[in-house]
Amino acid sequence: MMQISCPHCGPRAQNEFVYERTIDSVVALDAAPEEAMKTLFTRNNPRGVDEEIWRHTYGCRAWMVITRHRVTNEISAVRAVGPEALP
């Protein structure tokens, strides 16, 4: 299990958090249908580092972006997001 440092609550066990999707797969409200389709249904899915949206569902319920290596599970950054951070 990973320990995730919530920007609001500090270090917490991973089972308080829920994964949503990667930051680059958030569909902009004014995206053209083809672009929306690509964004929604395809992923880089790297065997390395990606930026993921997680939510502290069983804690403060805030969204955050976690930069994590998908083989080692090393978390290099956690940042809070608000509506202004989304495309």
Binding site: M1, Q14, Y19, N45, E52, R70, V71
Partner: peptide, 12 residues
């Protein structure tokens, strides 16, 4: 339920 290539899982 979260992306991983680690080939090791979560005790939960």
């Amino acid at each position: 339920n979260w992306p991983s290539y680690a080939q090791r899982g979560n005790p939960i």
